[in-house]
């Protein structure tokens, strides 16, 4: 019998060996779909611990990358027993790195943490023109738009993108969060976003606050 809080803690500790051992045993025990869903939730809560430790300065970006990988491996192991039932979705995010910028590490960390928190994330990729953000927002009608960038030029591109959403009449229907190395309070006001962060875990918390 799997002990859920032990699993949550093992994910939080990034103890890969223990996590994979617990999950292998669990899958072998032929659990029901509901039991499997509880285990998925326990894993997701483990990501919450990782996020908290990151905010406290005990974990760093490298640890978040590993955590994302660990969660992916965990979910893959559980796939045979999860069945068709999908977890409850808390909200939808359209995410991308803005035009001119090819960096994606921060964006990918945010995506894996947002997905772990139950968001459906439509990831456009890197160096995305304004039109791609606009089209995707029209198509999926998200709660939130997340824009990422590492270069200082990304600030201008974020402004372009938000202006594009305004022009298309889509700005008021979404919350916008910007993330990455160059974002600051001033940059956030300048581009017209609702929130900013250089901390993926804190960014997910902001998004959770918006859809609650």
């Amino acid at each position: 019998m799997i002990v859920l809080n032990e699993l949550t803690q093992a994910i939080g500790d990034l103890d890969e060996e223990k996590v994979m051992e617990m999950l292998a045993e669990f899958v072998y025990s032929k659990p029901t779909e509901n039991e499997a869903q509880e285990v998925v939730n326990a894993c997701q809560q483990g990501m919450g611990i990782v996020g908290d430790l990151f905010e406290k300065g005990e974990y760093f970006v490298g640890d978040l990358i590993f955590a994302g990988q660990l969660l992916t491996e965990a979910i893959n192991t559980l796939k045979p027993v999860i069945g068709g039932k999908s977890a409850s979705k808390v909200g939808t995010i359209v995410l991308g790195t803005v035009h001119g910028d090819l960096h994606d590490i921060g964006k990918n960390i945010f995506r894996s943490m947002a997905e772990a928190a139950g968001f459906v994330v439509h990831d456009l990729g890197t160096d995305q023109p304004v039109s791609n953000f606009v089209e995707k927002v029209k198509e999926v009608n998200p709660d939130i738009v997340g824009m990422s960038g590492v270069l200082t030029l990304a600030i201008e591109s974020m402004k372009d993108t938000i202006d594009g959403l305004k022009k298309a009449g889509l700005r008021d229907g979404v919350r916008i969060i910007i993330g990455g190395n160059p974002v600051t309070k001033e940059a956030c006001e300048y581009v017209g976003a609702d929130a900013f962060t250089s901390n993926a875990a804190a960014g997910v918390k902001i998004c959770q606050g918006w859809v609650r």
Partner: peptide
């Protein structure tokens, strides 16, 4: 090292 959409060179992961 590849060029971004506006011509600036960058290092992808």
């Amino acid at each position: 090292y590849v060029m971004g959409g506006d011509g600036f060179m960058q290092h992808p992961n």
